[in-house]
Design a protein around this nucleic acid. Structure first.
Lengths: 228, 228
DNA sequence: TGAAACAAACCGACCGTCGGTCTATTTATA
DNA sequence: TATAAATAGACCGACGGTCGGTTTGTTTCA
């Protein structure tokens, strides 16, 4: 193979790019290190120069994903006129917008993440997302608690628990997607919509907010997402 | 090797026994099929006669674990004089009692489950526990909603979300354990206790119960568990 | 009654794959 | 030109899984 040298971060990013694509496309366990280095056009020596193990590569993929997620979320809560509840709603609204924009990509992601050969991938990504999200949400809760707009005596714990609820939503989103693909749009949309509402209600009640304060979803979102 | 024949379910249970022990002791990925068959004194052929893959063995371990957990929990809510909230509290109280009784074993389990080589083990067990627990809790919520003692319009979704919160608690339990082992009993107990309270509060609020209805923990539990 | 036929349980040598190692070589830079 | 970083790719050992066969118990029927 021709010997080409590139700036380290370019190479390692290329490897992460290929890995990310292959992991989601064929699954983590089904993707071999050889597949990755072949796709990246790099030797095994070069690969192990950048990553101590396949596991480390997975971690890099997850971390970069979480980092990008954070960068996408940060600006949503930048508006200084928003109170804590407004910020939470801004996060939800922004997430919905992003979900609709990247619907097809997200659907693939979901289908991939819930496959049994991807538990490691799923777990690492969940962990990384949690790690960047908890401080963000905890800070909002702290502000809200100080403002008196919501009640969260232990912001870190509350943030962790609130974010944990995402998992239930993600799971039902996956189920709804399968149901949609099986032809049952109505059932899928109804199920997803119901759970999203429950999700919003759970957050409201946990934070002692008035009914309807949290807009975890909006009227036509579930259908739109499924059909997108 | 001498050829010994046993009733199929005895053999497969022996294999699951050995696997369970080895998985928790050395980790899922660190345990080879050869380790298992050696421990069970069985040939490779016999193993693959019972399980199509190592993965299938893991699933069997997780399923059996969840099943046993369910059988331990069922009797706790048998008292017909209990209302739904009483049943929930009975579950919590029973879980605490069991946790204290099997403290040392549980600590090992926790330490094992959170190791990176055990994501698959963790995930499968979590999944299996969720699968048996959701119907149980949903049924309690349904009853409570009918009784009017609590508010849970969508029992399945609510049960799923409530149970999801366990993960946060489990995670902090693990952290607390590490902290305790590092010598900081006070800090560990305080952290664990705080989160358990928050956990109870989250459930109360979500189900629209009066403050203090749910006893997710009791005064000296955290310390007792850590020191046990 | 007993032997032939059959199915389930079991054995262990063997295989292909895959993550990871190692030595050699090239490239950039001080 | 010395040194370290980067790259190449042959190679290794372990592991999950396969396969051809053997043993054991049970059923069938002359």
């Amino acid at each position: 193979m021709v010997r080409t040298k590139k700036p380290p971060e370019v190479r390692s990013n290329e490897l992460i790019d290929c890995a990310e694509r292959l992991f989601f496309q064929h699954g983590y366990e089904n993707t071999t290190v050889n597949d990755v280095i072949q796709a990246a056009n790099v030797s095994k020596g070069a690969f192990y120069h950048y990553f101590v193990s396949k596991e480390a590569l997975l971690e890099a993929v997850a971390t970069r994903l979480a980092q990008r997620n954070l960068e996408a979320l940060q600006p949503l809560i930048g508006d200084p006129s928003l109170d804590a509840v407004g910020q939470l709603n801004a996060l939800f609204a922004g997430s919905r917008r992003m979900k609709l924009e990247m619907a097809s990509q997200l659907k693939n992601t979901f289908n991939a993440l819930f496959k049994p050969e991807n538990v490691a991938l799923y777990h690492r990504i969940d962990e990384a997302l949690l790690a960047v999200s908890i401080p963000l949400v905890a800070e909002i809760l702290r502000r809200g608690h100080a403002e008196g707009t919501l009640d969260a005596p232990d912001p870190e714990a509350a943030a962790s628990m609130l974010l944990q609820l995402r998992v239930s939503v993600a799971r039902v989103m996956h189920k709804a997607l399968q149901r949609y693909e099986a032809g049952d749009l109505e059932g899928a949309a109804a199920m997803l919509d119901g759970w999203m509402r429950t999700y919003g209600t759970a957050i409201e009640r946990f934070l002692k907010l008035p009914d309807g304060s949290i807009e975890a979803t909006e009227p036509r979102f579930s259908r739109a997402f499924l059909e997108a």
